[in-house]
Amino acid sequence: MNKLTKALQECESRGEKAFIPYIMAGDGGLERLKSQLIFLEKSGATAVELGIPFSDPVADGPVIQQAGIRSLENGTTLKDILKKVTEIKGDVNIPIILMGYANSIMAYGLKEFTEDCLQAGIAGCIIPDLPIEEEAVFSTIKTAGIVLIRLVTLTSSRERITQITAGAEGFIYAVTVKGITGTRDAFGGELGGYLKQVKDLSPVPVLAGFGISTPDHVRNTVQSCDGVIVGSKIIECFEAGKENQISELIQASKELVQK
């Protein structure tokens, strides 16, 4: 079974909610990756989303844009990232999901990318500018047993959510805001209903992401879904050396359960 699917199932059987932090590969240098992954694993993360830096990240807000720029300034390439993950895979147990824009993967070559991902033990991919209509070109990834995670958003109609969830693998990434990634103070009132609707339709777990940045957000959000993804806030915490806040966020996802 796919490593990510397994981790999510185990999470569910423990009665826990999933927590997936996002970090930008190469932000602070790729040599930092191993210690970051081990820290996140020890803090209780279910999996890690590893960002591939891209020159034109249209789905990302300022924090992730800046992290990408820092990474690119360090000379990070997708080749280096996969090489590094391959090198450290013996020391890291949690599933790694690559998050990158379509062009990074196309420029690498689909076949080579898939082979190198298998080599590195990559469990899944998220491509934020790849709606289901364009998935076919990326099918080698799925065929190889790497899950291609689909996104639904607040603007997706019920009909479309049905279409997207029908062939979903791993989990459904439910985008919680109309907008790009980045921390926010508040969410629209429709969020709970939206997440419940997605959950009703989805055969795989539903994780919410975009804009989640405080332990309260985490606690509130996990009431209507199977877990959360936190990106910009994690990047800020690593950047500011406030790893303890990351632990608090992860813990907040565990509180709801088993009460």
């Binding site: 249209v58 789905a59 500018d129 209509e133 364009e134 603007t155």
Partner: peptide
């Protein structure tokens, strides 16, 4: 060509 955009824009 195609539509390589975030899902949020698909409805629009």
């Amino acid at each position: 060509g195609g539509r390589f955009v975030p899902e949020t824009l698909m409805a629009a």
